[in-house]
Amino acid sequence: MKYITTVEGKEYTIEVLDDHHIILNGKTMLVDFVSVDGQPVFSMIVDGKSYEAIIQEGEPEWDVLLRGRLYPALVEDEREKRLKTASGGAVEGGEYQLKAPMPGLIVTVLVTEEQEVTKGQVLLILESMKMQNELKAPRDGIVGRIRIKAGESVEQKQPLLSLH
């Protein structure tokens, strides 16, 4: 299988030949890649060099935590990528859903429905682990439906409000 993986703006063409061989940008390499104890901790030995990383599937990128640094990596099937490029890329979604990044308590909601907000504006305050966290607008927009009230407890990933 052939993949095109993008890390920090750089594209790498990586073909996985079998369990131990890959072709990286045209060069064949011997790799030994194992998961440690079924965890998202992976050990890789490549040309005698030993690396260990925590690798987690994010959306849409894979998060690789390696030597104290986070590398978000976009892994695409070469065919998929070609198809996507042909169709002109994904269209930006019109509506943004603000979801609770963690479970907690809504302290205050600082906006009202139909209110115009600017990027970076604080929308509401969520208290978790004794800290008050300001949740901000990721872009300019108009506040759509607000699904929660101050004083309510929320679960992680619960939709709080929408922006359009």
């Binding site: 890390v7 992976f42 890789m44 690798i55 640094r69 990596a73 892994v75």
Partner: peptide
């Protein structure tokens, strides 16, 4: 270690 990270992510995805 961008290149190594790319290989790691690709192998995990694979």
């Amino acid at each position: 270690f961008g290149e190594i990270a790319a290989v790691l992510a690709t192998l995990a995805a694979h």
